[in-house]
Write a protein that binds this DNA or RNA. Structure first.
Length: 877
RNA sequence: GGGCGCUUAGCUCAGUUGGUUCAGAGCACUUGGUUUACACCCAAGGGGUCGGGGGUUCGAAUCCCUCAGCGCCCACCA
């Protein structure tokens, strides 16, 4: 009686979230129980919740809540990532709005702004997660730039450097001219773009001849230091050993020969620009060519760009084509599709650039991490990702870990001299000074002589330690928390970051714990809209998760997200799913309201029908419990939800409650009421991971609960004997009831009007559900007869025939027609079975079970035909 | 260019080793019902030659080949 007439999701959600928090139910401490741990994939600290997070965190919360109910010490560690590039870009943009240029700030000043920004906008996303019901251990909230996590990063860097795995190298790297930093290969996204292929003619030095090359990047002629032809290309024999003159620039460059050149592409002549193309760099190294870098950091041209100095590369491309055309150096232009590397974060077009950067050697580190997945030490769900993972790991390249950014962990390398190699790597300035003194033998060095490397580390260089560093396992490898919670159990994340993050965490796990960081990796799909477009802020096709929550309730959204989310498959998000979710919540609420509204009488005996119904449901419930176990063990979340959904909606609400419901105005007997309450309680337990709020709300209402009692920390229902015969008999009863309903509909007999049902049984018949058939069929009587009932409509289930006498004339013609159709269908069916059984090869080859089944089919069909025939005979008189 | 995956009802998807009830589920749809928890309800019902073609088999949505369409990952061809 305590439930309101209508379910108010908002107030219920707030009430119970506060209650859970207040009672510390999300918090985990080391104890005697077995730990079940998940570390959250840390979202960007200043990010906001999007649909991908909703899906991801719903799944994590379902896993965590279920583990908690199953008696594990469940620990879900939340936190955020400093997101070096993304955050720095936001801060730079914000400063720009205020008229401040990053260049005019010192590192310290800039970092102050960045921290302000972080404090102001940071952690909003975690507050949003609370609205979703996420039961994270908020006392453990971590941030990749927390002191201990930062120290962990530095310690690891120093360690890897000392192991010889980190080195500094002058390499061609990916340069993001927008963020003005290098990127790792994984941060470059290649996009197909329609471009042009320009054919340019170069004069041959000292001759009245020209050669033509094809290029997509005419602006880089400023950096040309050679022309390359294939040594076997007879077309260009006359050019060998000669030199060419770069148009506009006038520079004389050699014509070299290399088999790298593709004879089929373009003209067979290639211009070589070692500073701005990886292949050209390799050619340059091989042939000792000059390297001329023509770009500034922002991808405008430098002084090598002559009169184009200071202009952007793409403007220069347009202008230089005009100039080349005017001097007759542009031969022709063709359309050309090519893949352009763009920055994952800023979307800027990447410029290959030579520079000094820090790298981590990956090959050896990757080995145990590869084996772990191939040997199923770590399970990727779904398994199709194993191949992708293997391919990447087997071809892993050194990781560029330095970024020309300030927001992040500054590289702990300290320069004490002018030479490239005049540096030491140490966890602190003091240690660095000691090391520098040792290395140089110069004891008069002071702190002032040390200059720390300006660069920061790639964000992923801190998040790859996440499952260890959140438990402080890097700094204190033997503390009791890391030993207890590590390895964690499940990781739930998007496949997009399989290499960025997952693979590297596995690597770090083996390197720093000698053990896997988690056992299962559940890879979710991408959330897309109905047009299959990825939901993103820039496309504007993503609903605001908080709006959805206020509209459908957190429970509703959770169900909606989970209804269609097979692991690894994209989720076609449709608001209708949320509608279905909140309808389900409403159904649970109303069913509970019905039960709690019942008047209970202690002086009534439990009717036979209720007793049977309760026993049946208990078996059904246990059966579903096993199915759930199976689905969960395979991480089939949608299936687990659907099995629960159908159990509650169909078996519990549509069948059980209808079976035990007292007739209008009458009280329910005490025994049945108690049984139903117990059943409801168990239902709520298996519902709780999916719909935590409504389930807690009702659980708290259906009995007097102690102050510290709560569904969230109760226990998962126990399995017990399943009476399969009850389940089977119920199915038969349900078919009979359905038959009655069909006839009522056909003959327009309203439910209120009672009818008689006669059963002509040709085989042993179990009467367990008779009382229920009577109740749900609203029968005045249920009789077993030995002869057909005259003047009655009939229907058949298996080999039994059921008769309902109807007042008024029966349409004999119609009945005959109906029976004839059924007969001819059954005869056709029997014929196909006969054919099969007469086929010797089938009888010889098929397993016995299959043949036995066919024989059973044959017998059933024959019995049914006999029944139909005799019915027809009696109808025809 | 290489690799992986997908194509089953209007929509989103299940279909484990080929074998009763395997051609399914949820939603949507149609029809009927409902002063007695819920129209976010109840009941009944329609709907698919399992992308096309070929093959293996007594038997194929399931295995093989091939074609078509879609998606993803990886890769330095100007």
């Amino acid at each position: 009686m305590a439930l309101a007439a209508k379910y108010d999701a908002k107030s219920v959600e707030e009430k119970w979230y506060d209650y859970w928090m207040k009672n510390g139910y999300f918090h985990s401490e080391v104890d005697d129980r077995e730990a079940y741990t998940i570390v959250i994939p840390p979202p960007n600290v200043t990010g906001v919740l999007h649909m991908g997070h909703m899906l991801n965190n719903t799944i994590q919360d379902v896993l965590i809540r279920r583990a908690r109910l199953k008696g594990y010490n469940a620990c879900w560690v939340p936190g955020t990532d400093h997101a070096s590039i993304a955050t720095e870009a936001k801060v730079v943009a914000k400063l720009k709005d205020e008229g401040i240029d990053k260049k005019d700030l010192s590192r310290e000043q800039f970092l102050e702004h960045a921290w302000d920004w972080t404090h102001k906008h940071g952690g909003i996303i975690l507050e949003q997660l609370k609205k979703l019901g996420a039961s994270c251990d908020w006392e453990r909230t971590a941030f990749t730039m927390d002191d201990n996590l930062s120290s962990s990063v530095i310690k690891v860097f120093v360690d890897l450097y000392n192991k010889g795995r980190i080195y500094r190298g002058y390499r061609m790297v990916n340069w993001d001219p927008e963020a003005k930093t290098t990127l790792s290969d994984e941060e470059v996204v290649y996009e197909e773009k329609q471009g042009k292929l320009y054919y340019l003619s170069y004069k041959v030095e000292g001759e009245d001849e020209t050669l033509t090359i094809a290029t997509t990047r005419p602006e880089t002629i400023m950096g040309d230091t050679a022309i390359c032809i294939h040594p076997n290309d007879d077309r260009f024999n006359h050019l060998k050993g000669k030199k060419a003159i770069v148009p506009i620039v006038g520079r004389v460059i050699p014509i070299i020969e290399d088999e790298y050149v593709d004879l089929e592409f373009g003209t067979g002549c290639l211009k070589v620009t070692p500073a701005h193309d990886l292949n050209d760099k390799e050619l340059g190294d091989k042939h000792n060519l000059d390297v001329i870098d023509i770009f500034n950091d922002d991808a405008t041209l430098n002084s090598f760009g002559l009169h184009y100095e200071g202009k952007d590369r793409f403007i220069v491309r347009k202008e230089i084509i005009k100039e080349l055309e005017s001097i007759g150096a542009l031969v022709k232009t063709e359309d050309h599709m090519n893949k352009v590397g763009t920055s994952e974060r800023t979307k800027a077009i990447i410029e290959p650039k030579l520079s000094d950067q820090w790298f981590l050697k990956m090959k050896e580190l990757a080995k145990p991490a590869l084996d772990a997945v191939l040997d199923k030490e770590i399970h990727l769900v779904p398994e199709k990702f194993i191949n992708t993972y293997r391919h990447w790991m087997e071809n892993v390249r050194d990781w560029n870990i330095s970024r020309q950014l300030w927001w992040g962990h500054q590289i702990p390398a300290y320069y004490y001299g002018d030479g490239k190699e005049d540096f030491v790597v140490a966890a602190s300035r003091a240690e660095a000074l000691t090391l520098a003194k040792e290395k140089t033998g110069n004891t008069s060095l002071t702190d002032q002589d040390l200059i720390q490397d300006e660069d920061a580390l790639d964000t992923w260089f801190s998040s790859w330690l996440w499952p260890i560093s959140v438990f402080n396992g890097i700094l204190e490898p033997n503390n009791k928390e890391i030993n207890y919670y590590y390895p964690t159990n499940d990781l739930v994340t998007a496949p997009e970051i399989l290499f960025f993050w997952v693979a590297r965490m596995i690597i770090a796990g083996y390197e720093y714990r000698g053990e896997k960081p988690f056992t299962h990796v559940y890879l979710t799909g991408i959330v897309r809209d109905k047009q299959r477009r990825k939901m993103s802020k820039s496309l504007g096709n993503s609903p605001d998760p908080l709006d959805l929550i206020s509209q459908y309730g957190a429970d509703g959204i959770r169900v909606g997200m989970l209804l269609s989310s097979p692991a690894g498959n994209d989720l076609m998000f449709d608001e209708d799913l949320c509608k279905q979710g909140s309808a389900f919540v409403n159904k649970i609420f109303n069913a509970s309201r019905l039960i709690l509204g019942w008047e209970v009488a202690t002086d009534i005996e439990q009717p036979q029908s209720s007793k049977v119904a309760i026993q049946w449901y208990q078996s059904k419930f246990r059966q579903v419990l096993l199915i759930l176990e199976d689905h969960y063990s395979k991480y089939r979340m949608s299936d687990a939800l659907m099995a629960t959904y159908k159990l509650i909606w169909d078996d519990f609400c549509s069948w059980l409650l209808e079976m035990v419901k007292p007739s209008y105005g009458n009280p329910i007997d005490h025994k049945t009421y108690g049984d139903v309450i117990t059943i409801l309680e168990n239902n709520l337990k298996i519902l709780h991971p999916f719909v935590p709020f409504i389930s807690e709300e009702i659980w708290q209402q259906i009995a007097d609960r102690k102050e510290d009692e709560a569904l969230i920390v109760s226990d998962w229902p126990k399995t017990d004997a399943i009476h399969n015969h009850l389940i089977e008999e119920f199915e038969n009863a349900a078919a009979i009831i359905s038959g009655i309903r069909t006839i009522r509909k056909q003959k327009n007999i309203p439910f209120k009007e009672t009818i008689d049902l006669s059963i002509l049984n040709s085989e042993e018949f179990n009467m367990t559900f008779d009382s229920i058939i009577q109740k749900l069929g609203n029968l005045s009587s249920l009789n077993y007869v030995t002869e057909k009932v005259e003047g009655a409509i009939s229907f058949r289930i298996k080999s039994n025939e059921y008769f309902i006498p109807v007042s008024g004339a029966i349409n004999v013609e119609e009945e005959i027609k109906k029976l004839t159709e059924e007969l001819s269908y059954t005869e056709g069916f029997l014929k196909s079975v006969h054919k099969k059984l007469q086929n010797e090869r089938f009888v010889n080859n098929a397993p016995e079970q299959v043949i036995a089944n066919e024989r059973k089919k044959q017998a059933d069909a024959e019995a049914k035909i006999a029944t139909l025939k005799s019915s027809l005979d009696s109808l025809r008189g």
